[in-house]
């Protein structure tokens, strides 16, 4: 690199026209070449550490599991076993349901916040609001999840507080170790993820369109319904995907809040991979889960295609 830089300088110093430079000089000056050279360290890292490992688990999922080894022989057995296993089906269905509930709760609760910050907070204070919203997201995820266990537990903050106030005589048992408490915890953890994309979409809306709507005789509510909401939909779609995809693979919350008795798909992958040390089976589950998530996301994108048209 320093060599070509030196060469480029000597050429310009002599005042030679560019066309006389060698083919190599012309290549190093081209935009595409410079782009590739610059992006290559990061791209190579991503290929080695992400693309290759992903390809490996796809390959593993078609291999046979020998005792402590992997037999490199093509088989569909792992997939057949996985898809006919009632445990996998139950866990996958539960993961999809929990993620769908978390996504619905997060996005519905987040929309008014994004709307408030975008439309009713003075421009100078917007950054401060966003900062306040994102701070909890950056603080220890594990401890935040555990705190919900402390709040909802048998001897937890809610139960001990309510008993202390004399409102209940014995601890409420229905608030921990169930699907609802998992949904609550995840919705809390992923809240900022939903707010930011919706906020960005709302910020892009030309305010003159809203005035035009009202000038043409629409009520405030109808303007919101027919102008603001459709224009904000790309943000809502992004928020849905950004919350849905990571929550389905969450490991910590089902483990801590569900007490290990309500596993989601990540817990199943971990159990097959580490506890049972059956890597082909674990890979098959991971690949199946990824395929299902991708399929659901694509269906969702397809359903919302009219809002996304002309956005790119």
């Amino acid at each position: 690199m320093p060599l070509c830089a030196f060469r480029a300088r000597t050429v310009t110093k002599k005042g030679e026209p560019m066309a006389l430079g060698s083919r190599w000089d012309r290549l190093t000056r081209s935009e595409a070449f410079n782009g590739y050279v610059l992006v290559s360290p990061t791209a190579i890292y991503a290929i080695l550490m992400l693309a290759a490992p992903l390809a490996t688990i796809v390959a593993y999922s078609f291999f046979k599991d020998g005792y402590l080894t992997i037999i490199r022989e093509f088989t569909l057995e792992n997939y057949i076993t996985t898809w006919t296993d009632p445990v996998f089906r139950a866990v996958m269905l539960r993961s999809l349901m929990v993620s769908a509930m978390v996504t619905a709760a997060t996005v519905l609760l987040a929309f008014p916040i994004a709307y408030y910050v975008s439309f009713h907070v003075p421009a100078s204070r917007k950054a401060r609001w966003l900062f306040l919203i994102t701070i909890p997201f950056w603080t220890s995820y594990l401890i935040r999840v555990f705190l919900w266990k402390v709040i909802l537990g048998y001897n937890g903050v809610i139960n001990s507080g309510l008993m202390n106030l004399g409102l209940i005589d014995e601890p409420l048992t229905f608030i921990l170790y169930n699907v609802n408490s998992i949904v609550l915890t995840l919705a809390h953890a992923y809240a900022p993820f939903a707010i930011l994309p919706i906020f960005v979409a709302l910020e892009k809306i030309d305010r003159a369109l809203l005035e035009a709507g009202q000038d043409l005789g629409e009520s405030r509510l109808m303007t919101f319904w027919r102008v603001t909401l459709p224009l904000a939909m790309p943000g809502v779609v992004a928020a849905v995907l950004i919350v849905f995809i990571p929550t389905i693979g969450d490991y910590v919350t089902p483990q801590l809040i569900g007490g290990g008795k309500i596993p989601m798909v990540a817990n199943l992958i971990q159990a097959r991979m580490l506890d049972l040390d059956n890597k082909p089976m674990g890979s098959a589950i991971a690949v199946s889960a990824m395929a299902i998530v991708t399929l659901v996301s694509l269906i969702f994108l397809f359903m919302n295609r009219r809002f996304l048209r002309g956005q790119r």
């Binding site: 550490m49 992400l50 490992p53 992903l54 995809i245 990571p246 693979g249 889960a289």
Partner: peptide, 20 residues
């Protein structure tokens, strides 16, 4: 590809790296 880990569940990243 470089930005993919932003949306990929971390368990997938962890498992695939572990296997390799």
């Amino acid at each position: 590809l470089i930005m993919l880990p932003l949306v990929l569940p971390e368990i997938i990243v962890a498992v695939s790296l572990l296997v390799v």
